[in-house]
Protein backbone atom coordinates (compact mmCIF):
# COMPACT_ATOMS: atom_id res chain seq x y z
CA UNK A 1 0.00 0.00 0.00
CA UNK A 2 1.18 3.48 -0.72
CA UNK A 3 -0.32 6.93 -0.63
CA UNK A 4 -0.92 6.82 -4.39
CA UNK A 5 -4.51 7.91 -4.88
CA UNK A 6 -6.33 6.89 -8.04
CA UNK A 7 -8.32 9.62 -9.77
CA UNK A 8 -11.77 9.94 -8.25
CA UNK A 9 -10.82 7.86 -5.24
CA UNK A 10 -11.65 9.68 -2.00
CA UNK A 11 -9.00 10.45 0.58
CA UNK A 12 -9.46 8.13 3.58
CA UNK A 13 -8.63 9.52 7.00
CA UNK A 14 -8.50 7.73 10.35
CA UNK A 15 -9.33 10.09 13.22
CA UNK A 16 -8.55 8.63 16.61
CA UNK A 17 -8.74 9.86 20.15
CA UNK A 18 -7.90 8.19 23.44
CA UNK A 19 -11.01 6.60 24.98
CA UNK A 20 -10.51 8.44 28.26
CA UNK A 21 -10.15 11.80 26.52
CA UNK A 22 -13.56 13.35 26.83
CA UNK A 23 -12.85 16.42 24.71
CA UNK A 24 -14.27 15.09 21.51
CA UNK A 25 -16.23 18.07 20.24
CA UNK A 26 -13.19 19.31 18.36
CA UNK A 27 -12.54 15.99 16.61
CA UNK A 28 -16.18 15.53 15.72
CA UNK A 29 -16.26 18.97 14.14
CA UNK A 30 -13.10 18.20 12.17
CA UNK A 31 -14.66 14.90 11.05
CA UNK A 32 -17.74 16.74 9.72
CA UNK A 33 -15.67 19.34 7.90
CA UNK A 34 -13.53 16.62 6.36
CA UNK A 35 -16.63 14.75 5.23
CA UNK A 36 -17.91 17.95 3.63
CA UNK A 37 -14.54 18.28 1.87
CA UNK A 38 -15.16 14.84 0.33
CA UNK A 39 -12.98 12.74 2.64
CA UNK A 40 -14.03 9.38 4.05
CA UNK A 41 -13.45 9.68 7.76
CA UNK A 42 -13.18 6.65 10.01
CA UNK A 43 -13.71 7.64 13.59
CA UNK A 44 -12.43 5.62 16.55
CA UNK A 45 -11.46 5.65 20.21
CA UNK A 46 -8.41 3.78 21.46
CA UNK A 47 -6.67 2.64 24.60
CA UNK A 48 -3.38 1.55 23.01
CA UNK A 49 -1.39 2.87 20.04
CA UNK A 50 -1.47 -0.68 18.60
CA UNK A 51 -5.22 -0.28 18.10
CA UNK A 52 -4.65 2.77 15.92
CA UNK A 53 -2.00 0.94 13.90
CA UNK A 54 -4.32 -2.03 13.35
CA UNK A 55 -7.17 0.23 12.25
CA UNK A 56 -4.89 2.18 9.89
CA UNK A 57 -3.78 -1.09 8.27
CA UNK A 58 -7.25 -2.69 8.08
CA UNK A 59 -8.85 0.43 6.68
CA UNK A 60 -6.11 1.35 4.16
CA UNK A 61 -6.19 5.00 5.14
CA UNK A 62 -4.00 7.70 3.62
CA UNK A 63 -3.98 9.87 6.72
CA UNK A 64 -3.88 9.13 10.46
CA UNK A 65 -4.93 11.98 12.73
CA UNK A 66 -4.67 11.70 16.50
CA UNK A 67 -6.34 14.12 18.83
CA UNK A 68 -4.92 14.13 22.32
CA UNK A 69 -5.28 16.52 25.18
CA UNK A 70 -4.28 14.31 28.04
CA UNK A 71 -0.50 14.05 27.78
CA UNK A 72 1.69 11.15 26.78
CA UNK A 73 2.01 12.37 23.19
CA UNK A 74 5.64 11.45 22.75
CA UNK A 75 5.39 7.69 23.41
CA UNK A 76 2.03 7.57 21.65
CA UNK A 77 3.24 9.11 18.39
CA UNK A 78 6.56 7.30 18.69
CA UNK A 79 4.80 3.91 18.83
CA UNK A 80 2.42 4.88 16.06
CA UNK A 81 5.18 5.98 13.65
CA UNK A 82 7.29 2.91 14.43
CA UNK A 83 4.30 0.56 14.04
CA UNK A 84 3.24 2.03 10.70
CA UNK A 85 6.82 1.80 9.43
CA UNK A 86 7.14 -1.81 10.64
CA UNK A 87 4.13 -2.69 8.48
CA UNK A 88 5.38 -0.83 5.43
CA UNK A 89 2.97 2.05 5.91
CA UNK A 90 5.41 4.87 6.66
CA UNK A 91 3.89 6.59 3.61
CA UNK A 92 0.77 7.38 5.67
CA UNK A 93 0.49 11.05 6.57
CA UNK A 94 0.46 11.37 10.37
CA UNK A 95 -0.94 14.53 11.93
CA UNK A 96 -1.85 15.56 15.46
CA UNK A 97 -4.38 17.77 17.15
CA UNK A 98 -5.51 18.79 20.61
CA UNK A 99 -3.27 20.27 23.23
CA UNK A 100 0.42 19.58 22.59
CA UNK A 101 3.13 21.80 24.13
CA UNK A 102 5.43 23.60 21.62
CA UNK A 103 8.53 21.68 22.75
CA UNK A 104 6.82 18.34 22.15
CA UNK A 105 5.55 19.64 18.85
CA UNK A 106 9.13 20.26 17.69
CA UNK A 107 10.18 16.76 18.68
CA UNK A 108 7.16 15.21 16.98
CA UNK A 109 7.81 17.13 13.77
CA UNK A 110 11.40 15.94 13.77
CA UNK A 111 10.12 12.37 14.02
CA UNK A 112 7.90 12.74 10.98
CA UNK A 113 4.57 13.95 12.32
CA UNK A 114 3.74 16.29 9.45
CA UNK A 115 1.58 18.85 11.22
CA UNK A 116 0.06 19.62 14.60
CA UNK A 117 -3.25 21.42 14.69
CA UNK A 118 -3.56 22.86 18.16
CA UNK A 119 -5.81 25.54 19.63
CA UNK A 120 -6.08 28.52 17.31
CA UNK A 121 -5.92 26.41 14.18
CA UNK A 122 -8.98 25.17 12.32
CA UNK A 123 -10.24 22.21 10.35
CA UNK A 124 -9.90 24.07 7.05
CA UNK A 125 -6.14 24.34 7.56
CA UNK A 126 -5.86 20.63 8.18
CA UNK A 127 -7.97 19.86 5.11
CA UNK A 128 -5.90 22.18 2.91
CA UNK A 129 -2.67 20.62 4.22
CA UNK A 130 -3.87 17.07 3.51
CA UNK A 131 -5.07 17.94 0.01
CA UNK A 132 -1.78 19.66 -0.80
CA UNK A 133 0.30 16.84 0.62
CA UNK A 134 -1.56 14.02 -1.11
CA UNK A 135 -1.79 15.89 -4.40
CA UNK A 136 2.01 16.06 -4.45
CA UNK A 137 2.29 12.34 -3.92
CA UNK A 138 -0.28 11.26 -6.48
CA UNK A 139 0.85 13.52 -9.31
Amino acid sequence: MSTEIAPGEPIRVLLAKPTHDCHDRGVRLVAKKMRDAGFEVIFMNFLLPEEVIRAALDEDVHVVGISTSSGGHLPLFGDLLAGLAAHGRDDAVVIGGGVIPPDDEKTLRSWGVEAIFGPGTNAEQAIAMIKRRLATVSS
Binding site: M34, R35, G38, F43, M44, L48, R54
Partner: peptide, 30 residues
Protein backbone atom coordinates in the same frame (compact mmCIF):
# COMPACT_ATOMS: atom_id res chain seq x y z
CA UNK B 1 -22.91 12.42 1.73
CA UNK B 2 -24.77 13.41 -1.43
CA UNK B 3 -22.82 16.68 -1.25
CA UNK B 4 -19.18 16.19 -2.04
CA UNK B 5 -19.22 12.42 -1.62
CA UNK B 6 -17.47 12.34 1.76
CA UNK B 7 -18.55 10.14 4.64
CA UNK B 8 -18.19 9.68 8.36
CA UNK B 9 -17.70 5.99 9.04
CA UNK B 10 -18.49 5.63 12.72
CA UNK B 11 -19.32 1.96 13.19
CA UNK B 12 -15.80 0.99 14.20
CA UNK B 13 -16.07 3.04 17.38
CA UNK B 14 -18.59 0.50 18.76
CA UNK B 15 -16.49 -2.52 17.83
CA UNK B 16 -13.42 -1.81 19.90
CA UNK B 17 -13.62 -4.88 22.16
CA UNK B 18 -11.70 -6.92 19.59
CA UNK B 19 -9.38 -4.20 18.31
CA UNK B 20 -6.22 -6.27 18.66
CA UNK B 21 -7.57 -9.73 17.86
CA UNK B 22 -5.85 -11.06 14.71
CA UNK B 23 -8.84 -13.25 13.94
CA UNK B 24 -11.08 -10.20 13.70
CA UNK B 25 -11.02 -7.75 10.80
CA UNK B 26 -13.20 -4.66 10.49
CA UNK B 27 -13.46 -2.68 7.29
CA UNK B 28 -15.54 0.50 6.91
CA UNK B 29 -17.04 1.09 3.48
CA UNK B 30 -18.73 4.25 2.21
Amino acid sequence: SPYGGGAILGDRIRMSDHALDDEVFVRSVA
